[in-house]
Simulated assay, not measured.
Amino acid sequence: MARLGGITAVERPPTLGRRAYLQIQQAIRDGSLTHGEQYSENELAESLGMSRTPVREALLTLNREGIITVESQRGFRLRELSEAERREIFDLRSLLESFVASRLALNATADDISRLRGLVDAQEGLGEGQQSEFLALDEQFHLLQSATLGLERTHSTMVGLRGAMWLIGFEALKLPRRYAAVVAEHRAIVDAIEAGDPERAAEAAREHLANTAAVSL
């Protein structure tokens, strides 16, 4: 049978459940949904312009991921992470991201480095009132590294940990000048990767996460 060439897969639009999930994610990340408040599933569906079915699907996914707590017949709340959970999240991120940075230092192409620098440059161009945009770029910066290497299991684990980071992302930016510090720390990681120095890259990743954890804990 002849092989088909020059044909690319058709990208399917996200399902309504996936769209609801992404919009709720954004609302958590930009602070529209906050801790200590109880939210109605019906009101959320109305705000999103959707039926309850895809919204419920999204909420059940977020509940399984430990991001929210679903309350029967009443709605949902954002989860309050314990100090032990927060420490575990940062410990896991430090182990994984230092490993990824060291591997990337040995394998990154000029294009890989350019893409990482582009994200850091975009962060630097934001002001301190643009927290949501800053955090979105932060997420892209960290996840791009494992995606670039094709480390599927590592990447999947990191994506799961980023979900928990939505709950504490704003806290990591509370200290004065933390925006500038994050940009500088990201640049240090990229510089070490570009220099082809795996030990320096791993240490830069660990230092960045230690500094972020110090604020969040």
Score class of each variant (00 low, 15 high):
residue 5 G to N: 05
residue 5 G to D: 10
residue 7 I to D: 03
residue 8 T to W: 11
residue 8 T to S: 14
residue 14 P to R: 15
residue 18 R to T: 14
residue 20 A to D: 08
residue 22 L to A: 13
residue 24 I to L: 01
residue 24 I to N: 00
residue 26 Q to R: 12
residue 26 Q to E: 15
residue 27 A to K: 02
residue 30 D to F: 02
residue 35 H to G: 03
residue 40 S to N: 08
residue 41 E to C: 04
residue 43 E to T: 15
residue 44 L to K: 02
residue 53 T to L: 06
residue 54 P to V: 02
residue 56 R to M: 04
residue 57 E to P: 00
residue 57 E to M: 11
residue 57 E to S: 06
residue 58 A to W: 01
residue 61 T to E: 10
residue 62 L to D: 00
residue 63 N to Q: 14
residue 66 G to E: 03
residue 67 I to P: 00
residue 67 I to V: 15
residue 68 I to F: 00
residue 74 R to F: 05
residue 74 R to P: 00
residue 79 R to P: 03
residue 83 E to V: 14
residue 83 E to M: 12
residue 86 R to S: 06
residue 87 R to W: 05
residue 95 L to K: 06
residue 97 E to L: 05
residue 101 A to W: 03
residue 108 A to Y: 01
residue 109 T to P: 01
residue 113 I to F: 04
residue 114 S to T: 11
residue 115 R to M: 14
residue 116 L to Q: 06
residue 116 L to M: 06
residue 121 D to Q: 13
residue 124 E to G: 07
residue 125 G to P: 05
residue 125 G to R: 07
residue 127 G to Y: 09
residue 127 G to P: 00
residue 129 G to I: 02
residue 129 G to K: 11
residue 131 Q to N: 08
residue 134 F to M: 02
residue 136 A to W: 05
residue 140 Q to S: 11
residue 148 T to R: 04
residue 150 G to A: 03
residue 152 E to M: 13
residue 158 M to H: 08
residue 158 M to W: 04
residue 158 M to R: 15
residue 160 G to R: 02
residue 162 R to Q: 15
residue 162 R to T: 12
residue 162 R to E: 14
residue 162 R to W: 11
residue 164 A to E: 13
residue 168 I to M: 04
residue 168 I to F: 00
residue 168 I to T: 09
residue 173 L to E: 03
residue 181 A to K: 12
residue 182 V to F: 09
residue 182 V to M: 09
residue 187 R to M: 08
residue 197 D to Y: 00
residue 199 E to A: 07
residue 205 A to M: 13
residue 205 A to W: 03
residue 205 A to N: 12
residue 206 R to T: 08
residue 209 L to R: 11
residue 210 A to Y: 13
residue 210 A to D: 12
residue 212 T to Y: 07
